[in-house]
Amino acid sequence: MSIPNEALQKLLQEIGQKKAFSEQQLLVVKQQKAARNRETRMLQLTANEVDSLPKDTKVYEGVGKMFVCTPIPDVQKRLVTEGVALEKEMENLNKKEHYLQQTYDNSKSSLEQVLRTGGR
């Protein structure tokens, strides 16, 4: 029993669209992960620099177009909080990447299977 040409064409189109969407979203997620990795590295470098400063050093943080003197413990606390938030974002991006990769692989194999069997 074979699938009618119209139904086969519609099926191939749907699978192809799903595959293309997954591939596009996968690239977006990989770019987001790279950006988060850069942010994490910057946080680590900043934390190392702040930790190496003497305790009586004045530290300034940018707020809009001005700088505000902030105690070192407050800066360290903010860096830790931002680091934890970035870790959670990375976990979510990893899950999303895994899901999209699975969807892409499944779509690709379904497309290959339909093409191989010729709709039979």
Rank of each mutant, 00 (worst) to 15 (best):
S2N: 14
S2R: 13
P4M: 06
N5T: 15
E6G: 02
L8N: 12
L11P: 05
L11V: 14
L12V: 03
L12Q: 08
Q13K: 15
Q17I: 12
A20V: 10
F21Q: 08
E23F: 05
Q24S: 13
L27S: 06
V28Q: 08
V29E: 01
V29W: 00
V29A: 00
V29T: 01
K30I: 04
K30R: 13
Q31N: 09
Q31M: 07
Q32F: 03
K33Q: 15
K33H: 08
A34Q: 08
A35I: 08
A35Y: 11
N37R: 05
E39G: 05
T40Q: 10
R41M: 07
L43M: 08
L45V: 09
N48C: 13
E49D: 12
E49R: 11
V50W: 01
V50S: 00
D51I: 12
S52P: 04
L53D: 02
P54T: 00
P54D: 06
K55N: 09
K55H: 07
D56C: 14
T57I: 04
K58T: 12
K58S: 06
V59H: 01
E61R: 15
G62Y: 06
V63A: 14
K65F: 05
M66F: 13
F67G: 07
F67M: 10
T70E: 15
D74Q: 12
V75Q: 11
Q76I: 05
Q76R: 15
K77G: 00
R78V: 02
R78I: 04
V80T: 09
T81N: 15
E82Y: 07
G83N: 06
G83H: 04
A85T: 13
A85G: 10
L86M: 11
E87W: 07
E89C: 07
E89I: 09
E89L: 12
E91F: 01
N92Q: 07
L93C: 03
L93E: 08
N94E: 02
E97I: 04
H98D: 10
H98G: 07
Y99N: 01
L100K: 03
L100P: 07
Q101F: 00
Q101R: 01
Q102T: 14
Q102A: 06
T103W: 04
T103F: 07
T103K: 06
Y104H: 10
D105Y: 04
D105N: 10
S107I: 03
S109N: 11
S110G: 04
S110R: 03
L111K: 03
V114R: 02
L115R: 00
R116N: 11
G118V: 06
R120C: 12
